[in-house]
């Protein structure tokens, strides 16, 4: 399984970025290898328009099975992500990636 996090930093102790479209980084955990992959999203963050759809496009290219984020994508981006067969978990505010991952594992994160 590939699990994507919206994150403000690049490490396992970084906090979840509450924003979807304008997230600083996308961090991907490969559960089989336990490797972290980091994607810098700063170019999208500075777009005047459509940061949500631009990030959704990126998500499509990364093809994670699960997305863990904060507020969750807005209506626009959520529609885009629905096409991707991706499970989306929200409300991981103020958690580190590790804490968010554990919450997801024990089923305490809200699924969209």
């Amino acid at each position: 399984m590939k699990i994507a996090f919206t994150a403000v930093g690049t490490t396992w102790d970084s906090q979840i970025d509450s924003r979807f479209g304008r997230t600083e980084f996308i961090v991907i955990l490969n559960e089989e290898t336990q490797q972290l992959e980091v994607i810098d999203n700063s170019a999208v963050k500075n777009e005047a328009h459509g940061a949500g759809t631009a990030t959704a496009q990126k998500m499509y290219e990364l093809k994670p099975d699960v997305l863990i984020t904060g507020n969750g994508p807005g209506d626009t981006a959520a529609t885009a992500l629905k096409n991707l067969n991706m499970k989306i978990f929200v409300d991981a505010h103020n958690l580190t990636l590790e804490q968010a991952y554990n919450s997801y594992k024990n089923g305490s994160l809200k699924q969209l």
Binding site: S18, R19, G21, N71, G74, H93, N94
Partner: peptide, 8 residues
């Protein structure tokens, strides 16, 4: 919407 992003 932008001012809401990330709000607690």
């Amino acid at each position: 919407v932008s001012s809401l992003a990330g709000a607690s």
